[in-house]
Write a protein that binds this DNA or RNA. Structure first.
Lengths: 233, 233
DNA sequence: CAGTGGTCTAGACCACTAG
DNA sequence: TAGTGGTCTAGACCACTGA
């Protein structure tokens, strides 16, 4: 009759979470400092620190030097949203991936694009419109603007067979991402491409990607109504 | 002329990220093992491990015992979505928070609720409909079902002045969360409460919360069109 | 100022797994 | 089965910040 086994720091973490949830460590209250917990749990401070850091990163605890550790009073839950490559995301859901390029070419940067890319409006950017299909059905409509200053050579890349995702991965990998999610009515080319009536509610994910030092591009991804985005704590 | 200062593991992490992004460590390629890196960077394996673990958690690297560490070929970016309490989220955006309860009472669990809460359909659940306001304007419409088996006493709680968020925090704190994001057309009570025409695209966040062992409830949060959700890598 | 968490070292054992 | 990452110990120094 052996235990299912877990690493000590995981068991300690679980026990601490139990104390938080049982009210033994009430919201807003201080908990013992690391050294005391190390004695109580019979391990070193490093192990306690590992468990506490993990709980703090998850939003259950708040830690401050000298101030000690307290249970979060108004916890900010941090849900994790997986953002796979578009192709991979469709494949993961068990669908056959398809791709159709609508247009790709240099255009003067529209105002909102120039602002995101931190460039003067009218400078050339690569605009890409493409449709991603799952089992032959429209799934996501991609409208993207890429900064050729950061992604050097992107204007000569061939996006007729595969989207910019993979090319960018190898030529201008992102290190930072900002995403905004909205609900928008379908309109124009996107509505037509997705095969939905204008006005149909669509989930839009706008992604702004950056290298360590410069903006790479702006992506607006419109999802077919059958699609939903999942996150977990 | 001193450096801006950063902890060694952060500088090492940054340097490793640079090597990934510069192509020195190409996607899919193996990188040296921890012991070798420790020698190269002139620190202990613990410090290297800290940096590598962080990069792996962010999705840049993939690590396996015996298999070593390799640069992620098809990286799954993990964006982080902050989920504050509803009241706090509105306050953080600099708006005055307002709350209006529409109804709260026990109802037989609808099928889809019973499924999420892992209960027989028709068993009593507490249904709450409420509107959250920002500067007096409708902001989010909350439709929630709470399992009184998990959240004992919830049927006697007073939700006329504050939403279930805070009550639940103290009486049935969640430890796991699943969230689904969709775009839906406004309809019925929600459209009326939010003051938008039926059919207006709305961003819906459906949250299923759980304690360590049992489901707590199901929340459907419909956002006013002026609202968007932000995430970051 | 002094208490607390954040981090690093030096070393060790072991679980996991690719070859 | 041998190499690799995952974790733990015991100890240390110090940045930060509340009192």
């Amino acid at each position: 009759m052996s235990k299912p086994f877990a690493a000590p720091w995981l068991e300690i973490r679980a026990d601490m979470l139990r104390r938080v949830h049982s009210g033994e460590w009430p919201p807003g209250g201080h908990i013992p400092h690391e050294a005391a917990l190390a004695v109580a749990y019979g391990c070193t401070r490093s192990t306690i620190s590992r468990a506490l850091r993990d709980l703090a990163e998850a939003g259950f605890l708040e830690r401050r030097r000298k101030g000690g550790t307290r249970v979060a009073e108004k916890p900010v839950r941090r849900a994790v949203l997986d953002i796979p490559l578009i192709e991979q995301g469709i494949a993961q859901q068990g669908h056959a991936y398809g791709y159709r390029l609508h247009r790709a070419g240099l255009v003067p940067a529209p105002g909102f694009v120039a602002e995101v890319l931190e460039m003067a409006p009218g400078l050339p950017v690569l605009e890409v419109c493409a449709l991603h299909l799952a089992d032959g059905h429209p799934h996501q409509f991609e409208h993207r603007w890429i900064d050729p200053r950061t992604a050097a050579g992107v204007e000569h890349a061939d996006f007729s067979r595969a989207g910019p995702d993979i090319w960018l991965l190898h030529h201008a990998p992102l290190s930072r991402l900002e995403m905004t999610l909205r609900a928008l009515p379908a309109e124009g080319a996107a509505a037509a491409a997705l095969g939905v009536a204008p006005g149909t509610p669509l989930l839009e994910a706008e992604r702004r990607s950056f290298t360590l030092t410069a903006p790479i591009g702006l992506l607006r991804l419109l999802h077919h109504p059958s699609f939903c985005l999942k996150a977990r704590l």
